[in-house]
């Protein structure tokens, strides 16, 4: 079964969506990601969608679900790299993407996540940063 790889970057998880997600793949990703957040105690999830050319209401719902579930597990979600055309389309579609942080790229996404985590909290995780 096809799977989208989840990378660990210190206290954060990084998912890069390379293909346009079809439903089953997206639902698998949702399950995998939540499982991994729980297992690793990750404090943040970065979802890189710079290669994604459309986000419809289904995909928007998946992103929202991931953010919502992660938050319950005390992790923040940042969607990074959204293309301008996709952003304009989402606004017109009326999709709120509530509870999701956004950033221009992975680097800025990490900055954003670091800012949301109290410093002493992060220190304990520092030893496996960038492993």
């Amino acid at each position: 079964m096809e799977k989208i790889p989840i990378l660990r970057m210190g206290p954060f998880l990084l998912v890069t969506i390379q293909v346009d997600l079809y439903d089953r793949l997206a639902l698998n990703l949702e399950a995998d990601l939540i499982e991994t957040v729980h297992k690793t105690g990750a404090r943040g999830v970065l979802i890189d969608i710079s290669a994604v050319s459309i986000v419809d209401s289904f995909m928007g719902r998946i992103l929202g679900n991931i953010a919502g579930m992660s938050r319950i597990l005390d992790a923040q979600t940042v969607v990074v790299g959204m293309q301008p055309a996709v952003a304009i389309t989402l606004i017109e579609l009326g999709l709120p993407l509530k509870g999701i942080h956004t950033a221009l790229n992975v680097e800025k996404g990490i900055e954003k996540l670091r800012a949301t985590i109290p410093p002493d909290d992060e220190e304990t995780d520092d030893d496996y940063y960038f492993q």
Binding site: V78, V79, V80, M82, P84, A87, I88, L90, I91, E92, L97, H101, T102, A103, L104, K108, G109, K112
Partner: peptide, 12 residues
């Protein structure tokens, strides 16, 4: 307003 919202979606 839409421009501002789209900018935010992109993370700016």
């Amino acid at each position: 307003i839409k421009t501002v919202s789209a900018t935010r979606l992109m993370g700016a």
